[in-house]
């Protein structure tokens, strides 16, 4: 029995999802590949966005993948950490901005 939910080796098996639904699997990978191609944004910029989102999504597979991807592209650890802070700032901002809703409710019920 597998003892943990996440196994780093499972990342290598990602491609196998097509085995159980070839059409959708292939469509996903095609889309995924296209998204990360050089476009209006450079592939390097996209890699940093992916790294930040990987953290806000807290996906260990994606964190592994996009840390390595960044290193391959010559991204420095300082750049990676700044990108993660952007993700963290949006996450915390998104939490805090709901404080306004709480304040509205308090004001309405008990103002």
């Amino acid at each position: 029995m597998q003892k943990t939910y996440y196994d780093p080796a499972d990342l290598r098996k990602f491609g196998k999802i097509t085995e159980w639904n070839e059409e959708l699997g292939n469509k996903f990978f095609e889309y995924y590949g296209k998204v990360f191609e050089e476009g209006a944004l450079t592939a390097r910029e996209k890699s940093l966005i992916a790294l930040a989102v990987a953290h806000t999504e807290q996906c260990p597979y994606c964190i592994d993948a996009y840390t390595k991807d960044g290193l391959q592209r010559g991204v420095t650890k300082e750049e990676m950490m700044e990108a993660i802070h952007v993700g963290a700032a949006i996450k915390s901002g998104a939490t805090l901005v709901h404080g306004v809703q709480m304040m509205n409710k308090v004001n309405k019920l008990d103002g």
Binding site: T42, L71, Q72, R73, G74
Partner: peptide, 18 residues
């Protein structure tokens, strides 16, 4: 050549950045 246990990125893109 990469500074650790990873492969080099795209040569043309790396050249541009360098």
């Amino acid at each position: 050549n990469p500074s650790g246990a990873f492969l080099p990125g795209n040569q043309a893109a790396m050249e541009k950045d360098f």
